[in-house]
Design a protein around this nucleic acid. Structure first.
Length: 121
DNA sequence: CTAGTGACTGTTT
DNA sequence: AAAACAGCCACTA
């Protein structure tokens, strides 16, 4: 387990708050934690996810600035894309998410409420 | 303390 | 649109 209060544990804590069907970017997470230039370190943190945390941290909801699933060692982006699809996240033909629509921001209302009203028009 | 190591990102080819 | 580059960073050996 990462030390309480460490950058890594704070990344996990934040990602846990991302709702189903919504995504955030590495850079966004870094910025929200007060380290706007630590996007890469966020990826490093998620890469080390294991044990019980794997089941408690919705790591699939973190994508890169282009809205795509980043490449990594081990397994391909298949699993992450599948997990997101299962939550209702749509991908375009380039395998990218429409961040304008799916990006989650704590301040911004979710799919229910004002946002739905806004999208109708 | 020094040197890598990437689930990153904005800029430039 | 895609690839190469160059900063950036927490973490690890």
């Amino acid at each position: 387990m990462p030390p309480t209060g460490s950058f890594v544990s704070r990344v996990y804590a934040l990602v846990r708050r991302v709702p189903r069907g919504r995504v955030v970017t590495y850079g966004q997470v870094a910025a929200m934690l007060g380290h706007p230039r630590a996007a890469r370190a966020v990826g490093t943190a998620l890469r080390k996810l294991d044990g019980p945390l794997l089941g408690n941290v919705p790591w699939q909801r973190v994508v890169n600035a282009a809205g795509a699933v980043s490449r990594r060692e081990g397994f391909g982006p298949m699993e992450q894309r599948e997990r997101l699809r299962r939550e209702g996240v749509r991908f375009d033909r380039h395998g990218r998410v429409d961040l304008e629509r799916a990006r989650w921001e704590p301040s911004r209302p979710g799919r229910s409420g004002a946002a739905r009203e806004r999208d109708r028009s």
